[in-house]
Design a protein around this nucleic acid. Structure first.
Lengths: 312, 312
DNA sequence: CATATGGATTGATTTAAGCTATAAAGATAT
DNA sequence: ATATCTTTATAGCTTAAATCAATCCATATG
């Protein structure tokens, strides 16, 4: 049994087709045919059911594929070990970013990063904090960018920046004349929130919770993106809070509705997080440096108070 | 990179000698030399420091060996998957047994088992409960025999038998005239115990604890084996408790010092335990059947009360 | 200095991985 | 029903890689 054979198994399991899998493996179809047959002969068990169209896995086949994934993944980590030893910065790097950070942060650092580290092949995915935690734990993500602290034992956090919350207050809102707002002004009942599952939503709720009791079921209007939140707010459906980076590219008209908080402004802590056993620490270092570099130019707040992103 | 190469790396790391490692791998020494060189070339890193005598691992080498172990172990599990599918009962099976069970139970079932399942190659180790739990969790043991319940989420338990405790009371002891003893008669202060780390010790302490408060630091006499415990007791140093199977091969004179408990007799639960993801379930079934078979002939108690083996 | 130990090197041999060409089996269209 | 297409299997060959026996070479030891 060889690692190559296991890779072939995985490719066929993925594409359900010898010919396509062969292409992806950069070999010919007969090569796959014979290698799979050899493996099946040696284990004396059928991995694929070729009578079905498209090809299906047998019951044992499914278990073997599962295990083959482990083995191939683990074998690739040997190269990672060597890379780390040499301080080499390159290879595939899978990173997750939460939805409320992705659209503002990614354009700020991505170009910079790939220019500085052309050998790193970033695979970026938008994921919720919860999804990120599972994937980091299972080793499917090398790192992620999320609001912290997460209070998770096996996950390490390295802070990138503190991003203040800014009030977005439409003209018809009771707070419209307050130049600078206070946390105590906030009332969950006239505030628009992101829908469930976003940690920015939980952050805002935590922010308000410390001050007032409220009725959890009263929020009627919820949205999946911060952009929609602003539009809903323009329609007079309530005020909302925006992460600071989201306020930078608003039109003049919209900018005029921004109300900063009095110091210390509530803020979220944004960190790059990774599993404590993660090997590609140099790439994490690199990301950390690039991102905090570009952010230094954009965010210059000293006095902030960090709000937990965790749901209570 | 091939699995074979990784196996070679592991062999050399183990024997610190190419020639010996080659023998164990059933290849010649030049084969190892060239294969290791190829791997080192490909990774472009030295795994072994050949200037030292005996050969040493480099820093990266150590990490690579660690990872290679993972990969080789995981790759061997593929055969296990297939074996399980086919119901094949054979291959290597690593089992741990706690010290207070090993000497009495092993002779009772071992011959029987290897006769019935000649293709299974048992590797038996005497380990404490604590060591067993770590090794089962890390996948270094396929199963173990220990006193239960262990209350461990990832470890499954299958009860083999209930083994009553029997009092061993020397002639000069205050309880010598009581034909049958009660749990309430026990006093930790005149009782001999095994040394720390044995769960049988913890079991006995739990048994007494429910009844009396006591001074933890008062036990003076402790021993590492049940045999010594009996001898110390003969010297008049106190009574002791024995697991039932240990009472079966005592001399007549010693047997006369045994005092059984009134029903329900305190007892320990002895189980075969294994990780919840263990693959070789057929072998565990086989062991379970053989052991509970031989025990059925030896232990015939109905009314027992199980004492926890866990330290408080 | 002789000798022993243990890894590296060389060159031949065997094994196995991969290729091209083609057959065979199934599905689909005419 | 026949032709056509799709997809996997097989055959025969080539090339690459693994292994071996023999030998070299460096280092340590008496």
């Amino acid at each position: 049994m060889t690692i190559t054979q296991l890779k072939y198994v995985l490719a066929i399991a993925e594409y359900k087709n010898f010919t396509k899998a062969a292409e992806k493996c950069f070999v010919t179809q007969p090569t796959l045919s014979t290698q799979i047959q050899k493996l099946e002969d040696q284990l004396d068990v059928q991995i694929f059911d070729r009578s079905k169209k498209p090809i299906e896995l047998t019951d044992v086949g499914r278990k073997i594929v599962q295990q083959a994934k482990n083995i191939v993944d683990e074998s690739e980590r040997i190269q990672d070990i060597v890379d780390q030893q040499k301080g080499f910065i390159g290879g595939e790097f899978r990173i997750g970013i939460i939805p409320t950070i992705m659209p503002t942060l990614l354009p700020m650092f991505l170009k910079n990063f790939i220019k500085k580290y052309p050998k790193v092949h970033l695979k970026i995915e938008e994921l919720t904090t919860e999804e990120i935690i599972t994937r980091v734990m299972e080793g499917h993500l090398d790192a992620a960018i999320a609001a912290t602290p997460l209070e998770h034992e096996s996950i390490k956090e390295r802070v990138l920046y503190y991003e203040p919350f800014v009030g977005y207050i439409p003209h018809d809102h009771r707070l419209k004349d307050k130049k600078k707002i206070d946390v105590t002004d906030l009332d969950l009942n006239d505030m628009l929130l992101l829908e469930d599952g976003h940690c920015f939503r939980d952050g805002v709720i935590n922010l308000c919770k410390v001050l007032k009791t409220h009725d959890d079921d009263q929020f009627q209007l919820e949205s999946g993106s911060i952009e929609t939140l602003v539009k809903l707010s323009n329609e007079g459906l309530g005020m909302t809070l925006l992460p600071y980076l989201n306020t930078l590219d608003l039109s003049d008209k919209m900018s005029s509705m921004l109300h900063h908080f009095n110091d210390p402004s509530p803020a979220r802590e944004v960190s790059i997080i990774y599993h404590k056993n993660e090997l590609k620490l140099q790439i994490i270092d690199a990301l950390h440096d690039v991102i905090s570099g570009v952010i230094r130019g954009a965010i210059a707040f000293q006095n902030v108070e960090i709000i937990s992103p965790l749901p209570k």
